[in-house]
Amino acid sequence: MNIASILHEKGHDVFTIKLPKTLLDICATLREHRIGAILIVDDAGKVAGILSERDIVRRIATDGPDALKADASDCMTSSVVTCGPEETIQAAMARMSEGRFRHIPVVENGDLVGMVSIGDLVKRRIADAEREAEDLKNYLYAS
C-alpha cells in the first residue's frame, strides 16, 4: 500500500496559511479545523514551512505566554520533509519515526497534493492487518 491509497480515502484537502501570522493566529486555526499541524505556503502555493502543536508548546515552554505574540516564521520548520504519493506507508512511517515528526506533506511534481499524519498511517496498517487476519481465517475455515 502507498500514500496515494490513504489520500484516496481521506481526501486531498490540506489547510495552509500564508505569513505573516502570529503563533496565536496559528493556534486559532489549528483549533478551528481540529488539526495538529499546518503548512505555511508561499504566494505560489509551494510549501515554505510547517508548524505543529509541538512546535508551539516548545516555544511557550521557553518564552512563556508572550510566545503567542511571536511571528510564526520564527517557530516553523522551514526544511520540510515531504513524501510522494507513490511512497509506501512503511517508508513514510519509518521516515516520520526517524525524524520524530507526526505530519508529512505529500508532494507530486512540486505540487502539494495532500498531507498525512502518523495516525493516518497507523490506522491504515491496522486495517490492513485486520483484513489479512480475516482473509486467513476465512481461508482456513473454508478448507
Rank of each mutant, 00 (worst) to 15 (best):
M1T: 08
M1H: 11
S5F: 00
S5Q: 08
L7G: 00
L7I: 00
K10Q: 03
H12D: 01
K18A: 07
L19F: 09
L19V: 13
P20R: 11
P20N: 02
P20T: 07
L23W: 11
L23Y: 08
L24K: 14
C27E: 00
A28C: 10
R31Q: 09
E32I: 05
H33Y: 13
H33E: 01
H33G: 04
I35L: 11
G36Y: 07
A37S: 07
A37Q: 00
L39Y: 03
I40K: 01
I40S: 02
V41K: 01
D42W: 06
G45K: 01
G45S: 03
V47E: 03
A48C: 03
I50W: 06
S52Y: 07
R54T: 15
R54G: 12
D55F: 04
I56Y: 03
I56P: 04
R58S: 14
R59F: 07
I60C: 12
I60F: 10
A61Q: 11
T62A: 06
D63W: 04
D66I: 15
D66A: 13
D66F: 07
A67L: 10
A67T: 12
K69Q: 14
K69H: 09
A70R: 11
A70V: 07
A70M: 12
D71E: 12
D71H: 11
D71Y: 11
D71F: 14
M76P: 15
S78T: 15
S79T: 15
T82C: 13
T88F: 14
T88N: 12
Q90F: 10
A94M: 09
E98S: 14
G99Q: 12
G99L: 13
R102L: 02
R102A: 01
H103D: 02
V107G: 10
E108P: 04
E108Y: 12
N109T: 08
D111P: 09
L112V: 10
G114S: 00
L121V: 01
K123S: 13
R124H: 09
R124C: 03
R125V: 15
A129K: 10
E130I: 11
E130V: 13
R131K: 14
A133I: 04
A133N: 11
E134M: 10
E134D: 05
D135A: 12
D135Q: 06
K137N: 06
K137W: 07
N138D: 04
A142F: 05
S143K: 05
S143R: 06
